[in-house]
Design a protein around this nucleic acid. Structure first.
Lengths: 188, 188
DNA sequence: CAAGAAATTGAGGTGACCCTCAACTTCTAA
DNA sequence: TTAGAAGTTGAGGGTCACCTCAATTTCTTG
């Protein structure tokens, strides 16, 4: 989009990179509501500099989340590559939730995508588009119940996001059990 | 327990009642993290008076939640009264989540019961004990898969709590669809 | 109707986080 | 090398919610 009229100064580039790295870490650990001051601290930069580079929390999201959300597309493609439509489908969900489990920022982003920027929403949407194909294929094969649709995915994501969040410390694998209940309910 | 040495003054009784009523309302609408100032405001009482009667947020919880959570026991008993163990079981879950859907304070309480007081935890526990019997009966009848247990209930509650919370405004019945997927996964 | 006990009040201190901006430092390009 | 543009800094002001306590009001009892 708006390409830099003047290139950034060398120290500014360094700071921007540190901020992005710190933001990925902090949001990944503590979710999208993590305090921005923690990011500045971890980047070794003052809070003023943080605001200079990223005037809003959403600016961070736009800079970080689309790239991360692209992983969704890889997972969906891998699912389509699976010769068995059903294991492709289950593999997709496992991949999706494993992603959410290992990065709180993705977990939050997918769960409350509605309240995020146009740009981030578009990234989620792209992933869900591909998911739609995985779902359609599984339905056509008869392995996935006919009344399940993409529109149900957000429901699943929302439900699982909470299980992942709550059990992250005590039982980081608990979401797998929960998912297996769901999958058994979806299988034909 | 500790019964009042001196009875409360008439105005104090009135204020205490207003506070409890306001707290039920406010927590019910906005969840257990609602600002206490809102409760004082709605009770028509100063913040100081609120703290005089309920020195901590937990004091409110102890005064409100056990009574509300007793509804769980009724629901479980109704489930046991159902001649069909499976519909008893599904009825129990529907009742439970309907309860969570109509009262955010219960939704929160059940989802994060671990971080609440001994007393509230005990109330949840009592409900879950009865649930265990509903679950056992359904398993023995062969209608509920054998590898499901009470220990899985918190998982379900946690998952559903989020769906309920998120869809409360936009699609207040969405949780029913989510539940039906689960139930199909649990049915034999 | 006192007088004293009980209860209420709300301004104000604390803390977490947000965000701004005037003064200062660092970089760059001539 | 140096002037001026670019970037950085962090104290400080704003918000919101928590919680306290000295001063004040209201109730109760003899």
């Amino acid at each position: 989009m708006a390409l830099q009229a003047r290139p950034l100064r060398a120290d500014a580039v360094r700071n921007r990179d540190s901020l992005l790295a710190a933001a990925k870490q902090v949001f990944g650990e503590r979710g999208l509501d993590a305090p921005l001051e923690e990011i500045a601290r971890r980047a070794g930069v003052s809070i003023g500099t943080l605001y200079n580079h990223f005037p809003t929390r959403e600016a961070f999201f736009d800079a970080i989340l689309p790239e991360r959300l692209a992983a969704l597309e890889l997972i969906a493609e891998a699912a389509m590559a699976d010769p068995d439509p059903w294991t492709g489908f289950t593999g997709f969900l496992e991949g999706l939730f494993a992603l959410q489990a290992e990065d709180q920022s993705l977990n939050d982003a997918l769960a409350r995508r509605l309240s995020l920027s146009e740009e981030v929403r578009a990234s989620c949407h792209r992933g869900f588009e591909l998911a739609a194909r995985v779902i359609e294929r599984a339905k056509e094969s008869g392995a996935l119940r006919a009344d399940f649709g993409v529109q149900d995915l957000p429901l699943l994501v929302s439900a699982m996001s909470q299980v992942i969040r709550e059990s992250a410390d005590a039982a980081p694998q608990a979401w797998r059990r929960c998912l297996s209940f769901f999958l058994d309910g979806l299988h034909r």
